[in-house]
C-alpha cells in the first residue's frame, strides 16, 4: 500500500529544515518574555546568580509586592488608562468626521484639503517648533494637551477616508431619500458600515497611546500626570544605567532585576489582553494601508 506521494524526498527535507528554523525563530522571539516572566516570580538571589534561565526558582511574589506598593506605579497606570481611553476617543471624534468630509466628492477644494492632510506625512516642522508651539499654547504639563496634541495622524485619516470612499454611493443616496441629514448619515450609516476600519484605527490609537513615552516625557513635569511608560523609563532605564543603584537594591527576596521584570509584566498584561483583537484587525489594517492619495 504505497500512498500517493505529494512531495519528493528533497521537498520533505526542505520542509523539516524550514520548520526547524522557524521554531528557533519563534523561540528566540518568545524567550525574552519567558525569561522576564520567570525572573519576576523568582527570588532576587536566584536571578542575580544566574540560576533562572527558563523556569522560575524560589518562587516568590516579593518583587510584585514591592512594585505594587509604589503609589507612583498606580498613579502612572491610572494616567495611562486615562490617556489611552480619552485620547482614543478624542482621536476618533476628530478623525471620523474629518475623514468622512474628505471622502465626499462634492466637498469644495477636496484636492487641496487632501494635500493639506497628506503633506504632513512628508514634511513636519520637527521637534523644537512643535515643542515651542505646545508651550505657546499653554499646554505644557497639561493632561488636556497630551490628549489633544496627538489626536490625529495623516495616516489614520487617509486610511479611514479610503474606506469611506469604498462604500457605494447608493447608501448615501438611499439614506438621503429616506430623509437623513449629514449627521444621521454619518452616525447611522457610515459609522456602522465602517466598523472594521474604525476598530482598526481605534486599535492603532490605543497601542500608540499605551506605548508612547517620548512626548509625555518631554511635556509632562508633574509626577502625578506621567503615564506608565515614562515611569517605566525612569525606573528601568535611568536607574539601571546607574549600576551602583542596581547593586544597592540586591537583597535575597527581590533584586533590581526581578523588580524590573515585575514592572514589565504588569505593564505588558493589558497589551496581551487586547492582542487577540489586535491580531484579528491589524491584518485588515495593513491591507487597507495601501494608503493612496
Amino acid at each position: 500500500m504505497s500512498s500517493f506521494n505529494l512531495y519528493s524526498r528533497g521537498d520533505k527535507v526542505f520542509g523539516i529544515i524550514n520548520a526547524t528554523l522557524l521554531t528557533l525563530f519563534v523561540l528566540s522571539t518568545l524567550y525574552p518574555f519567558i525569561y522576564i516572566a520567570a525572573s519576576s516570580i523568582s527570588s532576587g538571589l536566584a536571578v542575580t546568580s544566574g540560576d533562572v534561565l527558563l523556569f522560575p526558582k524560589d518562587i516568590t511574589f516579593a518583587a510584585y509586592d514591592r512594585v505594587l506598593s509604589d503609589p507612583v506605579f498606580w498613579t502612572s497606570y491610572a494616567n495611562t488608562m486615562f490617556y489611552t481611553i480619552f485620547g482614543t476617543l478624542v482621536s476618533l471624534a476628530i478623525i471620523i468626521p474629518g475623514a468622512y468630509a474628505l471622502s465626499r466628492k462634492r466637498l469644495l477644494g477636496r484636492r487641496y484639503l487632501n494635500f493639506f492632510v497628506a503633506f504632513t506625512m512628508w514634511f513636519h516642522a520637527g521637534m523644537i517648533p512643535f515643542f515651542l508651539n505646545i508651550r505657546d499654547l499653554g499646554l505644557l504639563d497639561s493632561r488636556i494637551g497630551i490628549l489633544i496634541a496627538f489626536a490625529c495622524t495623516a495616516f489614520n485619516i487617509i486610511l479611514l477616508r479610503n474606506f469611506f470612499e469604498s462604500i457605494p454611493e447608493s447608501f448615501e443616496e438611499a439614506a438621503k431619500m429616506d430623509g437623513a441629514n449629514e449627521f444621521t448619515l454619518l452616525w447611522k450609516v457610515y459609522i456602522p458600515l465602517s466598523k472594521p476600519a474604525l476598530v482598526t484605527i481605534a486599535l492603532f490609537c490605543i497601542v500608540a497611546r499605551w506605548n508612547g513615552y517620548f512626548w509625555a516625557m518631554v511635556l509632562l513635569r508633574d509626577e502625578d500626570k506621567i503615564p506608565l511608560q515614562v515611569y517605566l523609563k525612569k525606573i528601568i532605564i535611568e536607574l539601571n544605567m546607574d549600576d551602583q543603584f542596581a547593586s544597592s537594591l540586591i537583597n535575597s527576596e527581590y533584586s533590581f532585576e526581578t523588580i524590573v521584570a515585575a514592572i514589565i509584566v504588569a505593564s505588558i498584561i493589558p497589551v496581551l489582553a487586547v492582542y487577540p483583537y489586535l491580531q484579528k484587525h491589524f491584518n485588515k489594517g495593513i491591507m487597507m494601508g495601501g494608503v493612496k492619495e
Binding site: 457605494p168 447608493s170 447608501f171 443616496e173 438611499a174 439614506a175 431619500m177 429616506d178 430623509g179 437623513a180 444621521t184 447611522k188 450609516v189 456602522p192 458600515l193 466598523k195
Partner: peptide, 24 residues
C-alpha cells in the same frame, strides 16, 4: 427608489432595514 445594488444596511436586520426611513 430601489437601487441596483439594493443599498441594504448590512448591520441592520431586514425589519430594521425596512423601517429605517420611517424611523428617520
Amino acid at each position: 427608489m430601489v437601487f441596483q445594488n439594493y443599498a441594504l444596511y448590512p448591520h441592520l436586520s431586514v425589519a430594521e432595514n425596512i423601517a429605517f426611513g420611517l424611523k428617520l
